[in-house]
Design a protein around this nucleic acid. Sequence first.
DNA 1: ACCCAGGGTCATA
DNA 2: TATGACCATGGG
Length: 207
Amino acid sequence: MYSHYGPQDWWPGDTPFEITVGAILTQNVAWVNVSKAIANLKEEKLVTPKKLAGADPDIVKSLIRPAGYYNQKAQTLKDFLSWFSRYRYSFSMLQKRDTDELRRELIMINRIGPETADSILLYALERKLFVVDAYTKRIFSRVGVLNGDEGYQQVQEFFHRDFAGEMQEYNEYHALIVAHGKDVCKKTPLCDQCCIKNLCLRRGLSG
DNA sequence: ACCCAGGGTCATA
DNA sequence: TATGACCATGGG
């Protein structure tokens, strides 16, 4: 996949906080819409924890509107920030904490689920874990490695076990799966010849 | 006019 | 536990 699609340079964003905001805003929404929302926030210089926390909720809603679900997402940002304030809005503070502890705390925040939490952990905090998404389940179900009825944790454990790697590989892997999902598997329901199938066959995981 | 996109929550049976 | 409804915008 890497040789075909090249480096994906994920996550788009200049700072850990921008990455975090993007992870929240991108829930069930195309990234193009999220970029507009982030561009709006940037114009108002609100892409910093303190500024965003101090902003008028109605202003924030209007700025993130292109990303959809703006009422919920404005509240999610607020809830995240109220948790983050306990670390004095400092990513260095977060880095002192254990990955599993942070993950539990993030998931405790309303409307931040496992995928959003893991995206923040991998792409903003550079923790070594695999991010599961709908493409992952679809693609790996099709090639016969997953059933399709596994839960998030189960799928994640599968990848941690059979596709173990370093943080940089998890970073690229998730991005490539998304790229591949948008590219091929949407148009071609049966990916018999796809590179992932071949990879799994080589590893003795399907066939 | 439909369907879906880099999810998650809540009510119901 | 397992479905369904709901959140909302923008592009194909």
